[in-house]
Nucleic acid binder design. Structure first.
Lengths: 255, 255
DNA sequence: ACTTTTATAATTGTTGTACAATTCCGTTGC
DNA sequence: GCAACGGAATTGTACAACAATTATAAAAGT
């Protein structure tokens, strides 16, 4: 094991007095500021990374890269060594991923990669309908189409068939995430985040198939148009079809 | 600090060989059985309690009893002493409660009771509409009204005004929880669980007001009837009114 | 040969302790 | 009054140890 300080993850830890200077804020009121600040960015996450947060991000990446097979256990001895952290930190990080749906915890057996069955695919799609459907309702109500969604479609449209698949994956993710963000609901966003993770893991486990760029762009343009028309039932139906399409594809790819 | 063994929470830990005998299962296939079993009851929670689970339950109770004020910090030194556990265990338990919405974690400041503002009340209500609305859709579709919901209404109906308030609170909770359960979606249930916690905490923080039993029974009977008619839009509207009523009451009680 | 028992090893869950980093809080100085 | 300083309190992390459970493999029984 490395010496004490080499393991530390803290890097940009700003000292208190410096912060005080930067913010130009009197001593007395500083406490309230930090509280408020942290309460707001509890989800936007702009504070200096905790070791647990850094680790859970790292493990999340490994999981979503498809490094582990469904049903595989994440042995904490191995994990701790690979990320050079303590077991407690790993367990905290893993627990966070459990709440995200990327891991399951089995008492006395450890953390294991979920093995999604057809039921899960249906369940996730249904859940997505409830969550994203609410966001769609809000957008239809306000009439404000998020710029990021339009940008994502542009990316799809300008992508060649030969272009990197990850670009398309990211565009699709950005599109739907912007729909959720537009709802302005922190809880909607939080809940969708877990769904998004699960869906991404599903795609990875199921060989990450994706439609051809042109088709994909067309499909999402249709969704945008359904939002523009500001008719909730129709918009909802359009999105529903989109979700169900994915569900069908996923179910067909079931081993 | 108490001696080692006095702190242990393990109590009903069944020995492996005994289990094997009870289940009458050959050695070779046992592994698969436990895995499946745990995968299914990951949410129903029928395994022997972990120290972390026991602790988080205990702390959840304390929080929902209104013992702590909004904005109050749960100092881990105090908590560990009061529950005679290690700091690691407390932190794991607290993190679980963070994911449930009953606590917030502020880096380097600890775990704090959330202080819900009007925005949160609106957000929670909206979220509830999305989640419970989906369950309502499913019930309308299948036409199966959960027995527990009917039982809960009976309890409300037979309650006197003088009866214990907690009975009514429980009945209301059971009613809505059974609606969710009837959807048969594990994810819907998991997400509703956090909402339920937040709502319960809100009610506690806002003095736990509740309607008069008769009125409450009537209101829920109306909901049941809307489900019986099997018209989604109307049922959804009925439930929406119910949720909005609560929202209004909560907003009025804002300090 | 197949299952059951037994013993042993590997892994998880929990605790205690130590320490670095950060935040809190009272004091001093201006 | 407000800013800067310094010690005390608190959190975050690491390391080590051990109890409890599970996994694995060898021995025994049928």
């Amino acid at each position: 094991m490395l010496p004490h300080c080499a393991c530390r993850v803290y890097d940009g830890g700003v000292e208190q007095k410096v912060v005080r200077k930067i913010l130009r804020v009197p001593m007395s009121s500083r406490r309230d500021i930090t509280v408020e600040q942290h309460e707001t960015d509890a989800l936007s996450g702009s504070h200096t990374l905790t070791a647990v947060e850094a680790l859970s991000s790292a493990v999340r990446k490994r999981i979503l890269s498809g490094e582990f097979r469904p049903g595989e256990f994440l042995r904490d001895a191995k994990m701790c060594e690979e990320h050079s952290t303590s077991r407690h930190t790993f367990r905290a990080a893993a627990q966070a991923l459990v709440n995200e749906g990327l891991l399951r915890q089995i008492p006395n057996r450890g953390f294991v990669l979920p093995d999604f069955g057809p039921d899960d695919i249906v369940d996730i799609t249904r859940m997505r309908g409830a969550i994203e459907g609410e966001a769609v309702r809000m957008i239809v109500f306000t009439g404000l189409i998020p710029q990021q969604a339009l940008d994502a479609v542009k990316v799809m449209r300008s992508s060649k068939l030969s272009s990197d698949k990850s670009t398309l994956v990211a565009a699709d993710r950005d599109f739907h995430r912007s729909i959720i963000d537009a709802s302005g609901s922190v809880r909607l966003r939080r809940m969708y985040a877990t769904l998004e993770s699960e869906i991404e893991l599903l795609l990875v486990q199921r060989q990450d198939f994706y439609s051809e760029p042109g088709e994909m762009a067309e499909e999402h343009e249709r969704l945008i148009n359904s939002l523009r028309n500001r008719h909730y039932e129709k918009a909802r139906a359009a999105f529903q079809e989109h979700w169900t399409d994915l569900q069908t594809k996923l179910l067909q790819h079931t081993p």
